[in-house]
């Protein structure tokens, strides 16, 4: 029992995908979940009911006593958006590595070649990062990057602007300029369920302005991107995320990842983290 780890909300299922009760893992422990007559439930291994929240198309639970509500994404509620349940991908890496990769733009030209980035457009300009103390979240703003095909709805290359937000240790929300609606932001999230400290289930979810693409086109676009990320995530050494400086070498482009690691350390979130051997 570690309050700094247990007292958070974690995604454990896509609600539309729950057809029968099933078992899964949360922080290395077995849980069961199900949905009957429109109400979802989660139980721990001894059969005790755990708290639940249904939000963003997903079922959330906590093995502890969360001291705050599950975060909200007000932008996602505005009318006209299409809410996309992308499904899930299991990845053999620390949940924290999965979040950190989502916060990174410098890999676009090499991992998502000709989709989210392309050489020679590899430069990452300075952007703003801070830990917003009032809400205890990590934010990166004014992130700009040239993209050959930023979204399913994008035609030709454009410079895309991003904002990244880490509202919980294993969740990240990305706001990105929206090709059909200048001035609005598309919302793409990454909700990560820590199965164990080196194995996670990743539930991307999107709230997009896109009137043309079919649901399955939007899902396959995001799944393709995520498969490319998985080939990286399963081949980083060590599998856990090093929180202490020294083991890995960041540059200015990695300011978001540096802030994320620092914030995890500050709030004592060490599940899936590699600390210097004592």
């Amino acid at each position: 029992m570690n309050a700094a780890i247990d007292n958070h909300w974690y995604p454990v299922a896509m609600i539309s995908g729950i057809d029968a009760p099933r078992e899964t893992l949360l922080l290395g422990k077995k849980i069961t979940l199900g949905c009957e007559e429109g109400t979802c439930w989660v139980k721990d291994a001894s059969g005790n009911a755990l708290p639940t929240v249904e939000r963003f198309g997903h079922l959330w639970t906590s093995p502890g006593q969360p001291n705050r509500d599950l975060f909200t994404i007000p932008e996602a509620d505005s009318p006209g958006r299409r809410l996309v349940d992308v499904g899930s991908v299991k990845v053999k890496c620390s949940p924290l590595r999965a979040v950190e990769n989502f916060l990174d733009i410098a890999h676009f030209p090499f991992v998502h070649t000709d989709i989210l980035g392309a050489e020679p457009h590899t430069e990452v300009d300075r952007y703003d990062v801070k830990i917003r103390e009032e809400v205890d979240e990590v934010w990166a703003t004014k992130v700009k990057f040239f993209q050959p095909q930023a979204a399913k709805s994008a035609e030709g290359g454009i410079t895309t602007e991003y904002m990244y937000r880490v509202p919980a240790p294993t969740c990240s929300v990305l706001y990105k300029t929206c090709p059909p609606r200048p001035g609005e932001w598309d919302v793409i999230t990454l909700f990560v369920q820590p199965l164990t400290d080196e194995w996670c289930e990743v539930w991307p979810w999107m709230a997009l302005y896109d009137d043309d693409s079919t649901m399955s086109e939007m899902v396959s676009f995001q799944q393709l991107i995520f498969m490319q990320d998985r080939s990286i995530l399963e081949n980083q050494l060590p599998r856990k995320l090093p929180l202490d400086p020294g083991m890995e070498v960041p540059t200015q482009a990695d300011m978001t990842s540096v802030a994320y690691r620092r914030w995890l350390k500050k709030i004592g979130y060490t599940y899936g983290a590699q600390l210097v051997a004592a």
Binding site: H107, F110, N235, Q236, L237, P238, P242, P250
Partner: peptide, 25 residues
């Protein structure tokens, strides 16, 4: 192991007389 973010360099590519990492190049 790439010193930057630990990616396996064996997944990288040879460019000119250098070895490039596949993650951030």
């Amino acid at each position: 192991r790439c010193p930057h973010r630990g990616m396996r360099l064996s997944h990288g590519f040879v460019r000119g007389e250098t070895l490039a990492c596949i993650y951030h190049g």
